[in-house]
């Protein structure tokens, strides 16, 4: 008999609490739109707030209620937008998201320092303490405020003390753009792999004194690109990504090597047997890579060719093609390499 009582008490308590919980869950049941949970499932769930709603759940709710556009998720990009559109049963048209780039590549090796900073390892703190340690007033401080701002771990500080964005990890949410006290991080369309890695507004020899990869505002890139594609503004070239220009020539013409081309190896031009030796293409090549005798098949110097594609459509017999386009393997320096 004595053994039954505790068992009974415990059982009764368990039953009582179970009943209370059961009743409350009935009473407090929340009706959730099935779409909200589905949409939440395709969202990145990092609660970055770039959409303007508190938490991913807030955005999912707003979308399922028709208060927000399915394209609103910035880091999710067009993949997420399409997934949401599928759930909602609507059609949308979106382009691929942008990616962040650091408009500076002057690290310890390239850019001069004017002081030694030994404070809190944060760019904002360094800006307060004497405007940073670099001579250049617009150079990357390399203390990593953007690194901690990035929710995807896409930004790192190189051994050379400059921030670089890993394009594969970047989702273009733009959080780093606001985190940089010098405002030298920007977003560019993902299809463009070329950007200017300098934000310095000085010009000429002044820049050269303290940074070997600083833009001197010489204007060679402006001349090399299609009219209007690059504009010199406040002693810095401004790249217009909306046009056809691919900026490949600008990269090679820049005497200070200020540009960054994220594509390791560009495809090279090849002239096939259809060539009738008119020599038309020669004058379009910006790097003089095409040579030959009139009347015979012209050849392309593969070491010189930069793959800009300016000669492609100029051939009247269509003998010119790019070999080893993006995404294909190509042999460079004895190694096969995916581009």
């Amino acid at each position: 008999m004595i053994g039954v009582f505790p068992v009974f008490t415990l059982g009764a308590m368990g039953l009582f609490f179970g009943a209370v919980l059961g009743l409350t869950s009935r009473k407090l049941h929340i009706r959730v739109d099935a779409k909200t949970d589905k949409i939440l499932g395709v969202l990145p769930n990092i609660n970055c707030g770039a959409c303007g709603y508190p938490l991913c759940r807030g955005f999912a709710k707003a979308v399922s209620e028709g208060k927000a556009e399915p394209t609103g998720c910035v880091p999710g990009g067009f993949k997420t937008a399409h997934a949401i559109a599928d759930i909602l049963g609507v059609t949308i048209s979106v382009t691929e998201a942008g990616m962040a780039v650091v408009h500076c590549k002057g690290g310890l090796k390239e850019a001069a320092e004017r002081s030694v900073y030994r404070g809190i390892m944060d760019c904002h703190a360094a800006m307060v303490a004497g405007n940073g340690s670099k001579v250049c007033a617009d150079g990357c401080l390399g203390l990593g405020s953007c690194v901690s701002a990035c929710p995807f771990g896409a930004i790192s500080i190189t051994a050379n003390n400059v921030a670089v964005v890993n394009p594969d990890k970047c989702n273009g949410c733009g959080k780093c753009v606001g985190s940089c006290p010098r405002a030298i991080i920007g977003l560019i369309p993902r299809v463009h792999k070329i950007f200017l890695a300098c934000s310095n507004h000085d010009y000429g020899a002044k820049v050269k004194k303290y940074c070997s990869v600083g833009c001197t505002a010489c204007g060679l890139c402006v001349k090399s690109a299609a009219p209007g594609a690059i504009e010199m503004k406040d002693s810095l070239p401004k790249l217009d990504y909306s046009g056809e220009e691919n900026f490949i020539v600008a990269v090679h013409k820049c005497p200070s090597n200020c540009f960054v081309d994220l594509v390791k190896t560009r495809p090279k031009v090849n002239i096939d047997v259809k060539c009738d030796g008119s020599g038309e293409c020669v004058k379009y090549c910006p790097v003089d890579a095409i040579h030959g005798e009139p009347g015979r098949r012209y050849v392309v110097d593969k070491d010189k060719c930069i793959g800009c594609g300016l000669c492609l459509n100029k051939c009247h017999v269509h003998a010119i093609a790019l070999w080893g386009g993006l995404g294909y393997a190509q042999k460079t320096k004895g190694k096969w390499q995916k581009m």
Binding site: L10, M13, G14, F17, V20, L21, T24, S25, L28, I30
Partner: peptide, 17 residues
């Protein structure tokens, strides 16, 4: 343990609502 677990469940449901 029984009481605390049920209590937390209850609080969770209330807050969620």
């Amino acid at each position: 343990i029984l009481i605390i677990a049920s209590l937390v469940q209850l609080v969770e449901m209330t807050v969620q609502k």
